[in-house]
Design a protein around this nucleic acid. Structure first.
Lengths: 179, 179
DNA sequence: TGGTGTCTACCTATCGATAGATAGATAGCG
DNA sequence: CGCTATCTATCTATCGATAGGTAGACACCA
């Protein structure tokens, strides 16, 4: 397999694992077993676990930003755009009750290597920035909405019920927090 | 030391560790070192890690419920009671940027032993119930407020800034989500 | 063209550290 | 004596990481 393919496969598998069980539960041996190589080979692509974690978070933010820029430019009204935004977080739950990579890593913040923290921080900043542009509001309000969505995901995950997520978002809208 | 004392000390230290770094990062050896005993001795009080984790979450809910019942009966207006409620979550952040035990365990949900999950679920249910009584609202709205507070804590922790938590709660109030 | 060196992408084997867990001994106490 | 609470010592499993080797692709040079 080419370097790029294997590297991408590692990242895809690792991302899913983190979203399901967290950064701490991420294991080189498990990744390796999943994709049919040896754990030592992962070190060829990602010298340390911290580098893999940082690459994961960085890519996650980049991918999100790309999609969000397109969404912002789309010919949709504000509630529809917000709907699409929320559906990204919703999709994680639908995918085997997983969480947003940010949410689970933020919970483990105290255990994260510095380079991973940096990338995790970037995700919340990017989301707050995007939401403030969408809503033409200040960053504080945008960050509050982002936080509320993350919380909705966290609680819905514990309940194992996507309906809880939907009802919570609906409550945010009914209260006027979200558009 | 009496059984009770040691058991309580183990729980206190373990609780702080989970709030700082999560259930997965909780280590018998670390707890033992902290309180000056051997890790084997912890197994005398808590045969397995899962039992310790479940006991932690159970106690956490019990303690919370006790305080909340008193708060509900207190001679304060609604916003003041809500203030006090929020301040409990705020206090965790002030305590070395720790998180609510529920929040961090909910994030690790996919990795939690069944008996721990059960106790974690009980906490969100108890909070939703309490909030619905406080607000005289339906459970869905109450759960949404709980979720939003958890999210505020998660994001503020990543930012390492208690002001982010305060501003987020303020934004919830300004929007009309919280009283 | 054919040999030589280098690079990629893995491999096997192993390291030291740490995890939770257990068996069995022991000190102290009523 | 018997119980409680702790100890020492050890086990198995797993962790990330490293050392060293190798098949194959590719480039360069005589």
């Amino acid at each position: 397999m080419s370097t790029t393919d294997t590297r991408e496969t590692i990242m895809a598998v690792a991302k899913a694992m983190v979203q399901a069980r967290g950064y701490n539960a991420l294991s080189f041996r498990e990744i390796a077993k999943d994709i049919g190589i040896k754990s030592a080979s992962i070190h060829y692509h990602f010298p340390t676990k911290a580098e893999l974690g940082a690459a994961l978070a960085k890519r996650y933010t980049e991918d999100a930003l790309e999609g969000l820029e397109q969404l912002l430019a789309a010919d949709l009204d504000l509630p529809a755009k917000f709907d699409r935004y929320v559906s990204v977080f919703r999709a994680a739950l639908l995918n085997d009750n997983r969480m947003c990579l940010y949410g689970i890593m933020a919970a483990e913040y105290g255990d994260l290597p510095p380079e991973v923290r940096t990338q995790v921080d970037a995700f919340s900043a990017a989301n707050a920035d995007w939401l403030s542009r969408l809503l033409e509001s200040d960053e504080a309000r945008a960050l509050a909405i982002f936080a509320a969505i993350e919380g909705a995901q966290l609680v819905a995950r514990g309940r194992g019920d996507i309906a809880v997520f939907d009802q919570t978002i609906a409550a945010y809208r009914a209260a006027g927090l979200a558009p």
